[in-house]
Simulated assay, not measured.
Amino acid sequence: MSTPMTRRSLKERADAEGAPAMATLPPTARRRGIGRMLGDALLWVAALGGVVCIVLVILAVTAQITLIMFSTGSMSPTIPAGSVAVVQRVPASDVRIGDVVTVDREGELPITHRITSIADGDAPEQRVITMRGDANASDDPFPYSVTTVRIVLFSVPGIATVIAGMGNPLVLGGLTAAATTLVVWAFWPRSPRRREAGVT
């Protein structure tokens, strides 16, 4: 009468024969191993996303670096609609003709265009600038009197919709629930029998 084979005996036999232990495990155990690896990968992705968010907050506070989204194509083809740009607030005295900057307008949305001319303002730190979108045939109707602007460092096309969608309460709720489930699953205690059998 043959002795029943347990997972441990299968693993020991595989180690003795030099074969991979995973190949000798039953399909259920292999599926658990793959699920564990997938869960670990998702945890790393979530951790990386958290690090990116922390870095963005630190940059926003310490270096005045933020993100802006482009809903129109006035800066196409340089920055097409649907792009996200990384911008940094700088003194108006630091900008030059040809820079792409965002100007805040009281009671209106900010505007991001390319500087076409710069003149001194009433105060030493003030500048009067004219701007034009790369897709426009003429300058903006009025010049802008500014002491600071947000200069575009670089842009990434096509991700504005994704970032805007992250602000949807349903999306945020779903991501929070998914992250909670993943963390609970990853740190849920395993039974001693399963750990001894090499199944995670």
Rank of each mutant, 00 (worst) to 15 (best):
T28R: 14
A85H: 08
Q88P: 01
D94K: 09
I68H: 00
T28S: 13
D40F: 14
A63L: 15
C53Y: 11
M37F: 10
V57T: 03
M22K: 06
L67P: 02
G82N: 05
R30A: 01
I54H: 00
R31V: 01
Q88S: 10
F70G: 01
D40I: 11
T66R: 15
S93L: 14
T72E: 12
G49M: 10
V90F: 09
D15S: 00
V52I: 13
M22I: 12
S93R: 15
D40P: 00
T72R: 10
P91M: 13
A92E: 06
P26C: 11
L38F: 07
V87H: 09
T66A: 13
I68N: 09
L56D: 05
V61D: 05
V84G: 00
G33W: 10
V84P: 01
G39I: 01
G49L: 13
L38D: 01
I34R: 11
L42P: 00
L59Q: 09
P20T: 03
V95D: 10
G50M: 14
F70L: 10
V45A: 14
D40A: 14
V95W: 10
I54L: 15
I34C: 00
M37V: 06
C53E: 05
V45D: 06
T28G: 06
A92W: 02
S71K: 06
G18C: 06
S71Q: 08
V52R: 00
R30N: 01
A19L: 13
L59H: 03
G39D: 01
P26M: 11
V95I: 15
G49I: 05
V84D: 01
V61N: 03
W44T: 04
A47H: 02
G39S: 08
I97R: 05
I34L: 13
I54Y: 12
I79L: 13
P80E: 04
T28F: 15
I68K: 04
V95L: 14
P91H: 08
V84L: 07
S76D: 14
V51G: 05
T62R: 11
V86R: 05
P27T: 02
T28A: 15
E17F: 03
P20N: 07
C53T: 03
V95M: 14
P26F: 05
V57N: 00
A46L: 14
I79C: 07
A60V: 04
T24S: 04
G50N: 12
